[in-house]
Design a protein around this nucleic acid. Structure first.
Lengths: 336, 336
DNA sequence: TTGAAAGCGCTAACAG
DNA sequence: CTGTTAGCGCTTTCAA
């Protein structure tokens, strides 16, 4: 039971294998009659072109790689959905890699993807070394970042204005009268640092004191956030607000507050980031900063496919930056 | 700037390309000295074996395919995480397909995956035709289902005992005194039907009336659930409880209840399914049925890799069935 | 321990 | 409109 190859079909149809190749690829210069004959045999024998043979010749894989920090974080899940759906409509598949915010793992995934000949790469919030990124650029493989840690010329990215988003959160809280605000730090990706900078700037401008103890260690998901928040809450009395690195992290924080017998926002105001669907229906509906996650995925995929299809033209818009917005709900209290 | 191939390395090292192949694949019968020499050249020239050439020969892709209903549903996201993480540890990549619970799209994805020569397939809650599944089995490609719609002999699956889970939910509600219970139907996958059967059996055994109007149309996600729940709530007065097809759906239902000015569980008790992380921190902490999502992914991936590595041996355990458990929180009221 | 030859299944270039 | 020839980069015999 061997595989049916293009040669066998050619034999069966009494034509050359190149002719079969022509009809398979829908090229012109094939007589309607021949074409139909070949098509019939193809159908009858359920011929399917060999992916590897094609790839070996064309160096196209019709698949793109996506690296995310944590597919379980609804932010990434929704972004991935955007990527996958758009890719599907252009007949691309996507290999999803879960870096777990881990440097080494990211690099490993990168290598795997490249060695598999992906046609493009979408890299979301991971912490690649500058060297890797530069090698990537040199290789000339289409690549789009959604949020980046380094500003490297010639790089395509799609991101939100995180500094602005960070300000939105910090200023909102200070206007509500909060002075001691704890920052649950999300993984160290570019966007996170921008938001922390915005926070610090806001505090400084308002002459509000802060130091390193106002920042948690990196917190990755709902669980690690829960632990960090719990520890933080247990050890102090003066803080009135928490900035959660993202909504997933905010979940953990809110759980910790409730489990310790405190209330939101009466004892602690909490503000998140991302505006996940869950934000609306959380224990206390979460005030947060809105980002268009599906759109990020959609745009990144669209851009990649565009780049794949026009390898030579220098795409015009290199950077796309989206303005985040504050979504006010019930998790923050005015204490003025 | 051509690619460095095995031949070039051979030339540079002054050996045959087969020898290079041997050291690349870590085969024996290579003198330590030759090996080191070759290794040095490989490193120097950054040689990377060509994926397509290898695939053409070996018919192995080192990638597996995963089809899920909706990657945005945290159930699937967590399952996918399990699959991806386990695959990574065995150096497999995973192509994630988002079927959107759509029959045709599922079939299309299936074709794409097969044509890409995936080494294995994990199919999660989709609605493939019996024919497709049979073809799949005939092709002899390792495949694991997590939940299935058809019982086909020789198929591997990992699932929860959905009938049992359905009973858990229905009996819990009836014991609490509920008689008019609305069922927000999840997409028509095997597990869903089992749970509906369990619901009907429970009602019948308790001599509780129900008819078709007690069931919503299929509801896919938080948004469609919101719409369906909203419409349902607006049009009736007697129902006291809602069984949500899963926790993602429960989110939408709870939103609808609140937006319409009702309360949970005072006006409507809601029970979910899956025990997502969000269940704990929802507006009203959700009573639900627990399923080990990460474990499903992990087991499915483990099984697939095992099957890939032992293509001949008939794996023993064909079916793995896990017992779900009730997690009681605050979304259901005793109205006895 | 090493190498030569063949071929996996396809496409590209050119010839007819 | 169709066919021939070559070769993509690797692995697999088999022979040395």
């Amino acid at each position: 039971m061997k595989n049916i190859t293009i040669k066998k079909i050619a034999e069966l149809a009494g034509v050359s294998h190149k002719t079969v190749s022509r009809v398979v690829n829908n090229e012109k210069h094939v007589k309607e009659e021949t074409k139909n004959k070949v098509l019939k045999i193809i159908k009858e024998y359920k011929y399917e072109p060999n992916y590897f043979a094609i790839g070996l010749k064309t160096r196209k894989s019709k698949t793109i790689g996506l690296i995310v920090g944590d597919i379980e974080n609804p932010y990434y899940a929704r972004l991935a959905k955007g990527v996958i759906n758009i890719c599907e409509s252009s007949n691309y598949n996507v290999i999803v890699c879960n870096s777990q915010y881990n440097n080494e793992l990211s690099e490993k995934y990168l290598k795997m993807l490249i060695s598999k000949g992906v046609d493009g790469l979408i890299i979301s919030n991971i912490d690649l070394s500058v060297d890797s990124v530069k090698t990537l650029i040199k290789r000339n493989i289409p690549i789009v970042f959604t949020n980046i840690k380094y500003e490297i010329p010639g790089i395509n990215y799609i991101k939100a204005d995180d500094y602005h988003g960070g300000r939105l959160a910090a200023e909102y809280l200070t206007k509500l009268g909060h002075r001691k605000i704890f920052f649950l730090r999300p993984p160290d990706v570019y966007g996170a640092q921008e938001r922390i900078n915005a926070f610090k700037d806001t505090m400084t401008e308002n002459s509000i004191y802060f130091d390193d103890t106002y920042f948690s260690d990196f917190v990755f998901d709902e669980e690690s956030s829960y632990r960090a928040a719990r520890e933080f809450i247990s050890n102090q009395k003066d803080f009135t607000a928490i900035i959660a690195g993202n909504d997933f992290i905010a979940m953990g924080a809110m759980e910790a507050v409730f489990d310790l017998g405190f209330r939101v926002p009466d004892d602690f105001s909490i503000i998140g980031y991302d505006n996940l669907k869950i934000a609306k229906i959380m224990r206390v509906p979460l005030t947060t900063i809105k980002q268009p996650k599906y759109l990020f995925g959609k745009m990144a995929a669209g851009k990649i496919i565009e780049m794949i299809n026009n390898p030579d033209t220098n795409m015009d818009k290199k950077e796309i930056v989206i303005k985040p917005e504050l979504v006010e709900r019930m998790s923050c209290k005015n204490i003025n």
